[in-house]
Amino acid sequence: MDKEAGISNKAEEFIQMFKKGEEFTKEILRENEKLRFRVAQLEGAVERSGDETRTKLYEERIRLLELELSTIREKFSQVEEENKDFASKYIEVEEENNNLANLYVASYQLHSTLDFSEVLRIVVEIVINLIGAERFVVMLIDDKTNELVSVATEGLQASEAPRIRIGEGTIGKVTKDGESYFAEDLSAINKFNPLEPIVCIPLKIKEHVIGAIVIYKLLTQKAGFNNVDYELFNLLAGHAATAIFSSRLYTQSERKLTTIQGFLDLLKEKPKR
């Protein structure tokens, strides 16, 4: 009986111990659960704090990029402006280049010969092709009569060109004063009047006037004058005058030389008689 009671007590003790063990295990499991929860919480917190830092970094980067973008945009518009400026300057330079080419060709041609009639032909060509005149006359001062007489015409007969005294009318005044004349309204002069030109340019060697280019009508397609035309008029006033004057002198001296040579030849032949 005692033995049975002892076994029963031991079993009871064992059951109690087992229950305590079970309790303990459960407690450990609960504690474990709590710790896991805490770890998870901490991990979440760590992750969240990482996100915020990254967000801040991204925000800073966006701010910098936006700043950079606005600087680039500003520079782009500056470059665009400069580009437009360069384009318009390029057009200006091109135009100036073309004008200079015109002036160069005109000047080159004027001084390319010493033949008087050829120089006159070149002056006529320049006035037609580069200025765009349809009816005009080139006049030179006749030293004997002190009158302007026609030496080349275009679009009118030589007989239609007037003889003009220095100082008389528009043309005579231009020759006397040495100042170019431009009619205010080019379209207003429709009917041909030899004394009423639309343009009159004195042919001058320094201040000495030797003649004039008198324009009465422009080509249909030529509405008016531009800058290069005025440059050409200036060039004609000087270069054409020099070319005409020197070629006339040369032609005259050539003629005289031929005459003198003829006399000399005659004199040489005389002893043969």
Partner: peptide
């Protein structure tokens, strides 16, 4: 016209 020829050539 030699003047125009030169101008165009230019």
């Amino acid at each position: 016209s030699p003047t125009m020829r030169q101008l165009i050539s230019f």
